[in-house]
Design a protein around this nucleic acid. Sequence first.
DNA 1: TATATATATGAATGCTTTTTCATATGAAAA
DNA 2: TTTTCATATGAAAAAGCATTCATATATATA
Lengths: 116, 116
Amino acid sequence: MDSSEKKYGAYRLFFGALATDSRLHLLNALRKGRKNVSELCQLTHCEQSLVSHNLKILEHHGMVFVEKKGKFRYYKLNEKTITPLLQLIDTHMKQYCCKILEGERTTEKMQHEHHH
Amino acid sequence: MDSSEKKYGAYRLFFGALATDSRLHLLNALRKGRKNVSELCQLTHCEQSLVSHNLKILEHHGMVFVEKKGKFRYYKLNEKTITPLLQLIDTHMKQYCCKILEGERTTEKMQHEHHH
DNA sequence: TATATATATGAATGCTTTTTCATATGAAAA
DNA sequence: TTTTCATATGAAAAAGCATTCATATATATA
């Protein structure tokens, strides 16, 4: 296997970090300002260990920064990259959201399927 | 489960479509202008069925457009979204690429591990 | 120091997605 | 109209990832 194996690695990992509802939910919550872990748990309705795992990933990719303050940890967006990125996609979605979601498999549909 | 299940669905799918080497390779090849499937196979060193599967996904997300011409199909970037998106990440990567790749598991490392 | 609160981590589980293989479709050329 | 070339598709195998659970660490407070 040639060197192109690693060529897109960082890009793939970066976009992969944006490819779950739970992490997108976190980033969106942080759009309105910095928050600590407990606050983020409440806002996203996710349990604490998941939030911590996810924040670690987001931080590792330079998507958020952390500030320690006592026993709390405040996370905030990397506004230079993430704000314009999300804005770009917001615009894209105005046109393509429906097409992207069409044919999407939901829990509801799967349960419905079961009852046949 | 509440309605937030679907809330970020389109965004998750969009970023997921950017989270493989093979599809990033395709987009990068298209940065230099439109190409047909066979050309993209050569440029990316991927087999044809994979390229077709991937192009379908990219098209479904509004990332590329297709033009039929005889028995060929020419694909081109959605420059409105994808060009600035990739540029934004190019810039981000200048700073974070190394951190993102650090600790990354490569085929080489895994094979080395095996020999112990 | 003992206890409570906030956050992080590791391992296991299950789920989703990529990739491959075999085959189908569709358009042109012989 | 048979053959060839270009591309698409479906299903199965392989790979990768999110989430959970149990537990650890770290900081503050009684």
